[in-house]
């Protein structure tokens, strides 16, 4: 893993340095010549990050892997589950997040968060307690909605569906 990690880190900072900074960090013409321009700092960090990434990759080739493992480490809690299953679960979770963001525009914040909570409770393997899951997924978002809209006057997005239905 050490090599992959080193290359990923190097690549990340490399993309930032060579692709993102030239395009997205403009040098305004009115900053006086002696004052550091906006791209000085991100460039310095990216170069440092690339250096660290290369060092990581190099060390992973030359030395024995880290001896002491963390009990919270990904490898330690993986517990022999096949990689495919793990990736699939991760994809589900990311899809649920993305689905939430999209759904807010259509069905509003509350309905979307009820759906997301429901999905997450299923994904963490809580389905044995159907009663609790359904109860929590329904009540919690509504309670939070009432709290925030009455105490802080937050106006959560209602979604375009509500407008279409003429609500």
């Amino acid at each position: 893993m050490g090599l992959v990690r080193g290359i990923t880190v190097t690549a990340f900072f490399g993309i930032v340095l060579f692709v993102l900074i030239p395009v997205y960090v403009p040098r305004p013409n009115f900053i006086p010549g002696f004052a550091p321009p906006p791209d000085m700092w991100p460039r310095a960090i990216s170069i440092l990050g690339m250096g660290l990434g290369l060092l990581l990759a190099a060390l992973s080739l030359s030395r024995k892997p880290q001896a002491d493992t963390d009990p919270e480490d990904a490898g330690a809690i993986r517990d022999g589950t096949p990689l495919g299953t793990l990736v699939l679960r991760f994809v589900y979770a990311v899809l649920a997040f993305a689905g939430f963001i999209v759904a807010v525009h259509f069905v509003g914040f509350i309905v979307a968060s009820i759906a997301l909570l429901f999905a997450m409770l299923l994904l963490t393997g809580q389905w044995q307690r159907k009663g609790t899951v359904v109860l929590v997924a329904l009540i919690l978002p509504l309670v939070l909605y009432l709290f925030f809209s009455s105490a802080l006057n937050t106006r959560f997005p209602a979604g375009s569906l509500a407008t279409i239905l003429g609500l």
Binding site: I110, V111, L142, F156, A158, L167
Partner: peptide, 17 residues
């Protein structure tokens, strides 16, 4: 679930009166 939806719809109704 159905009840939940109608409850949520009712709340929406209030907000976008």
């Amino acid at each position: 679930m159905k009840r939940a939806l109608s409850l949520a719809a009712a709340t929406l109704l209030v907000t976008c009166a």
